[in-house]
Design a protein around this nucleic acid. Structure first.
Lengths: 236, 236
DNA sequence: TAGTGGTCTAGACCACAGC
DNA sequence: CTGTGGTCTAGACCACTAT
């Protein structure tokens, strides 16, 4: 068979066909779809082409494949809302606004018992601590309270965070391995409220994040946002 | 060449190799990696096998490919924290706790001007409104205030939400097309505070979500959580 | 024009499931 | 045993980029 070039690749045509039929209800959750051999015959393509179409839909969680058995329509993706939280500077700039930051603290400390435990390091281990307030068009929108494992980011104290945020610096020196996070709503301590120029009666949206790199805890950060002028948003 | 079966497929071996070299810094962001032809020769496999390895890494955002030019190491994935928010019942059960819900309202209404606008429907269009309080081990953790497009979920009023949450019902009748969401920290109105059995001085973590299905707005929901006993958490 | 990726073929052998 | 998916080949032609 001669390969006839078309605008749309054959494997894409097959993917579209399968998606359309699933959407239309021809095959419901758990139903088997036609085998590769059958689809290859129907579309007059080689089995490898069908294989690619079906394999990609499988990696997209649309289908399940069981070797020796068949290909089935996957369960509806579990009802979860995925929230993507970008770095603050990136986000502000993406909105076309001006980002500025104010460094309130940048010191070296020895790990207290509590910090040592959180970082899973020895008591007294050298850590860095920075407190930075981020502004969008000169309005404070985030207090970033960060603890950094000195082993993974030795030059942390020498950075100019007006140019490169801690986030950006850490991403460069310590490739991300994993993240734990939590988001909560709390009333701010006076210190935080002052830095954000808000009342301590205003709720804050707080993101805690702990990142791992090279099998160690790289950084533990708490980000405070004034509830009245900051929210996590997105769509997909 | 005879195909020698091994535990690890050849394309996977090549993926692993490329990932290892990238991690080791052999090629940095923006650098070109060897061409398919070169890799095929090195690994003594056909170009198609190399192609699969490289194509998959590209779909995983590890590499960028430019036709006619080459394959390059992609930029470090932008520093985003992905938060997955599950349905409340699912989440509570996953923790091994008891989930229970209380129905506070379940009515049919005509869309007000504001609602009609949010749903992008005609003024007076039939909508459903439900208010449900969710409990974890008899402690209120969520007020779910939901508006539903009646066209997409005609049997909404007839559901027993003690058995199947609105979320679960809607997922079944209206396949999800897209989601807009926002998360914020606010002080609760008295009505909400009462339903959660908290003080109206306690910050609430609020998730707004608007879902689309069949090219219409399917449902708009606001979920209120007491800041003192609820947070979004996760890891990856 | 030479080199790259993008796609496709018509076979092949294997592992596994289900009868 | 048959039918399924899992993988791989050794070519091929095309579209695009860079020189």
């Amino acid at each position: 068979m001669i390969n006839v070039p078309t605008a749309i690749p054959a494997f894409q045509t097959i993917k579209d066909f399968l998606l359309r039929e699933i959407q239309a209800g021809t095959w419901k959750e758990g139903d088997a779809i036609p085998s590769e051999a059958v689809l290859a015959q129907q579309f007059k393509v080689s089995r490898m082409t069908v294989n690619r179409a079906v394999r990609e839909l499988t990696s997209e969680q649309i289908l399940n494949r069981i070797q020796g058995s068949g290909t089935y329509v996957a369960q509806q993706k579990y009802q979860a809302t995925l929230v993507a939280i970008k770095s603050i500077a990136e986000e502000v700039r993406a909105r076309g606004h001006a980002h500025r930051s104010e460094l309130h603290e940048l010191i070296e400390v020895e790990a207290s018992e509590s910090l040592a435990q959180q970082f899973q390091v020895e008591l007294g281990q050298k850590l860095f601590h920075s407190v930075i307030v981020h502004f969008e068009n000169d309005v404070a929108i985030q207090v970033e309270d960060r603890w950094v494992n000195s082993i993974l980011a030795q030059d942390y104290l020498a950075q100019d965070f007006a140019i490169k945020t801690p986030n950006e610096y850490l991403m460069a020196v310590a490739p991300l391995q994993g993240v734990d996070y939590s988001i909560e709503a709390v009333m701010p301590p006076k210190l935080i409220a002052d830095m954000l120029h808000i009342s301590s009666k205003e709720a804050c949206l707080v993101l805690h994040r702990k990142t791992r790199s090279q099998n160690q805890i790289a950084t533990i950060v708490t980000m405070w946002h004034p509830g009245s002028r900051y929210q996590f948003t997105g769509s997909f």
